[in-house]
Simulated scan of single mutants.
Amino acid sequence: MKVISFINHKGGIGKTSSALNVGYSLKSRGYRTLLIDMDSQSNLTLALGLDKNIKNHVGKFIEGELLFEEVVKTANNLDILPASKLVAKTEKDLGNQPDFAFELKERLDQVKDNYDFCIIDCPPSLGVFVYMVMVTSSYIFIPMQPEFFAFEGLENIVEAFNKVKKHYNPGLKIGGVFFTKYNPKIRNTMYTELVDTIKEQYNELVLKTSIRENVKIGHAQIFKTNLFELDSNSNGAKDYDNLTTEILERIK
């Protein structure tokens, strides 16, 4: 099982939409796919129509209180370990344990033969859960908006990645960086220069696919579905399908 995580410590940049739609695209291609919601805001859980106050949440699985079978849910034909606002307490409790970094990996190793891919939606931070996810992951992908503060944040993520790779997970790779809420029609100097700077500095890490601004992405969240079921002809669905293809090419 390959573990792919979407990481950025800034909120509202498309981590959840990316996890959901890439997960669905993989599933539709015949891959056995598991989603994990690690964010106490529970956006991925909500996007699949599940209750954010669910009692059997991913935190209890990580801490060993519940078995995988007791936590996993199937919604919209996707398996998910759901989140709850209570996972914030799990993150706090685990942070006080010296060997917290390997808890998620050890739990998932028990079901690694059941799935081809595990897609993880991370909280908007560089805290305990995100480090734990990096230790668990095969690849991380970084969605970002083309704006100045996102560029600074990217440097912090790469620094955290380097620490985890050096000390905990030598096989960890950055699969790529991709732009979300991208508008190719914008031609102002700051926007263009920022995109060009990121492409120049991170070169081969920047994916060809960008996720264009599209109202259907918001509509899919409202109707608790994915873009492919909402409107498979939308720009959002096409972009995420192309992104999935490029991800598969990157991790061969």
Score class of each variant (00 low, 15 high):
K92T: 12
L154C: 05
Q41H: 13
L248G: 06
Y31L: 10
F178L: 07
N56I: 00
S5W: 04
A160S: 15
T180K: 02
N203Q: 14
S84Q: 03
N203F: 09
L172A: 04
I140H: 00
C122Y: 04
Q145W: 01
N226W: 07
L66S: 03
R212S: 07
P146N: 14
K85P: 10
A237K: 03
A47Q: 08
N156V: 05
D113Y: 12
I222M: 13
F223A: 13
A220K: 09
E213C: 00
T225E: 10
V158Q: 07
F178D: 00
N76E: 14
L20W: 03
I36A: 06
A83C: 02
T225P: 10
G14F: 00
Y24G: 01
I251V: 14
G153Y: 05
F68P: 01
K165G: 02
N169H: 04
K92F: 13
L207Q: 03
Y202K: 06
F223Y: 15
S28N: 15
R212G: 13
V215T: 15
K181P: 00
F117M: 06
L104N: 04
L94D: 02
L104F: 09
I142A: 03
F100W: 11
E249T: 14
D113M: 11
F100N: 09
N53Q: 12
L44V: 07
G30R: 11
R250K: 15
F223H: 14
D93R: 14
L78T: 08
G12F: 11
V215E: 13
D113N: 14
K238R: 15
L205S: 02
G12N: 08
G176A: 05
L48Y: 10
T74S: 14
G64Y: 02
A47H: 08
K238Q: 14
K199E: 14
V111M: 00
I7G: 01
G95D: 01
N242M: 11
I36L: 13
Y139C: 06
N183E: 12
F129A: 15
P82M: 03
T136C: 10
A160N: 07
L66G: 03
S84R: 08
I4D: 01
A220Q: 07
K238Y: 07
K10F: 09
M38Y: 06
N235H: 13
K52N: 13
E204S: 15
S138F: 08
F228C: 06
I62Q: 04
D93W: 00
T225S: 11
F228K: 15
N8A: 09
Y191P: 01
P98L: 12
E249R: 13
K2V: 01
K252Q: 13
D239V: 01
S210I: 02
P98F: 11
G218H: 14
N226D: 15
I62M: 05
F149I: 08
I251G: 10
D231I: 05
L34K: 06
S5L: 07
V215A: 12
K216P: 05
K60Q: 10
K105M: 10
L48E: 07
I120Y: 00
V3Q: 03
D196P: 00
T192H: 04
I222K: 13
L35W: 04
H167D: 13
Y240G: 05
Y202F: 15
F117C: 04
L154W: 05
L46W: 11
D93G: 01
K216E: 12
I140V: 12
N77M: 07
I211L: 08
Q110Y: 10
I140N: 06
T74L: 11
T136G: 01
D99W: 08
K185M: 11
N43L: 00
Y131W: 09
I157M: 04
N53H: 14
